[in-house]
Design a protein around this nucleic acid. Structure first.
Lengths: 151, 151
DNA sequence: CGAATCATTGAGGAATTTCAAGTGGTGTGG
DNA sequence: CCACACCACTTGAAATTCCTCAATGATTCG
């Protein structure tokens, strides 16, 4: 698993002849899938569209590079803390968030096992860095502590 | 560390306002660094250039995604085997290759420690999958075995 | 209620890291 | 030419992290 996508986001802009990844919905979703040929044609005619498409791809590159650093350099606690901060930022920006995905999905995304994710979340709760009203709902109680793990 | 670049390759096409990564030469190199503004201007005028730039970025995205799978799913032996096959393919394509980078660089790239890289290479040698005439020179002796690790 | 799914917890084991020492090649100065 | 220092690499042993396997809760849905 390489990424989570939230409403309004664009993904799958891969440009190769074959698709290399698949997408799976974890909540009810409506998705707009333009034809590749239509996109290319439009980009060919309109320089501004071309520019925007390039930017979208560059943004995706940036996100993946960030995630690569997570997978390459961080331990379990740092990965989970980074993930929670990131999700908070991408959803409400608030201190409270509802995770739409299962522990298994989080584990796959972070390159950990489901048990390690669960244990780490429990540990963050014991550290008073977060609070879990329910298993999918998370309250960030100490952003500073989480941020330190994000280093 | 996120990538190695070989002669003839283009890198650093990041498009954001700030550079997020730095590059370090590990052998004598000459590097052409065009101005960002010049590139953007050219892309604006010439749709074909714009298309090529987009493709370059998309290719980079693809490489990084591949590497993310390495970091997210593979153990040490699989990572090193994948790395060696990849380097062989990118250099001569031959069965013999000279690594231009240190063990430390490889370790950073693969998300391992220098000791683990060293031990793993030794292990591959004991498995008769490779041979090391010198520490930087590697002969692929059993591509099939390495490939199985690449799964 | 019972079944099913998701999440948590525990115990043991495996893989990797850490710390420390040793090896081998290379260049430098006596 | 040899002794020495230096560097990259290798190896060993102990410690740590994370995974695996197994059992137990919690929640949802029929």
């Amino acid at each position: 698993m390489t990424a989570f996508h939230l409403p309004g986001e664009i993904f799958g802009l891969e440009l190769g002849q074959k698709h290399r990844f698949s997408a799976e919905a974890i909540s009810a979703s409506s998705i707009l899938i333009p034809k590749r040929s239509a996109i290319l044609a439009l980009a060919g005619r309109d320089g501004d569209v071309a520019r925007q498409l390039w930017t979208l791809t560059a943004d995706a590159l940036q996100r993946v590079q960030d995630h690569m650093l997570v997978l390459g350099c961080m331990n379990a606690k740092e990965r989970v803390a980074t993930f929670l901060l990131q999700m908070a930022k991408r959803t409400s920006g608030d201190n409270e968030l509802e995770l739409p995905m299962s522990r298994q999905d989080i584990a796959d995304y972070l390159g950990l096992t489901i048990e390690t994710v669960s244990r780490t979340i429990t540990q963050l709760e014991n550290d008073a860095a977060i609070r879990l009203p329910t298993s999918r709902r998370i309250v960030l109680r100490n952003r500073a502590a989480l941020g330190r793990l994000n280093a």
